[in-house]
Amino acid sequence: MSFRRTREFAVPVALLGVCAILAGWLIPSHVTVVGGGNGLSPRFFPYVLTAALALLATMQLASLFRGEAGEEDSEVRSPVLEAPDYVAALSLFAYFAAIVVIGMVPASFLALAAYMRCFRVKSWWKVLVYAAAVTAVLVVFFQVAASVQLPRGMLGRALW
């Protein structure tokens, strides 16, 4: 079986796995049983959706077995996420972690500067001036004008 076919089959199979986890563990463990009677408890709707999802995933699987998949193109030959995607995703979570640790304003300034460099803006002074200006405008708009208490982070709370 080609890489493309494996990937196409993986989606409905994964969805069927999700349905099994939902029906067998998540819904019974994390949804309270009340209401009973005609199956109208808070569990009812998630069960209906899980059944519908399982049905659609099975139909998708059947259509793939019958060879009704779309035309092959170069896009589907690549993995779902490639190394640069992981780098991009990690950088986003690094930004999030920086917000939690040093606060939103310094983290955003650093993120702006770092991303601009990643986007090949070569002049350091342009990067720093732009990042500082944007951060200042955002602080004025959100913190001063709209009275939003921007998170100070663990470090910010510890220092002042």
Binding site: Y95, M104, S108, A111, L112, Y115, V134, F142, L150
Partner: peptide
């Protein structure tokens, strides 16, 4: 980068 920071704020 501006769009991302705007999204976060």
């Amino acid at each position: 980068p501006l769009i991302l920071v705007l999204c976060v704020f």
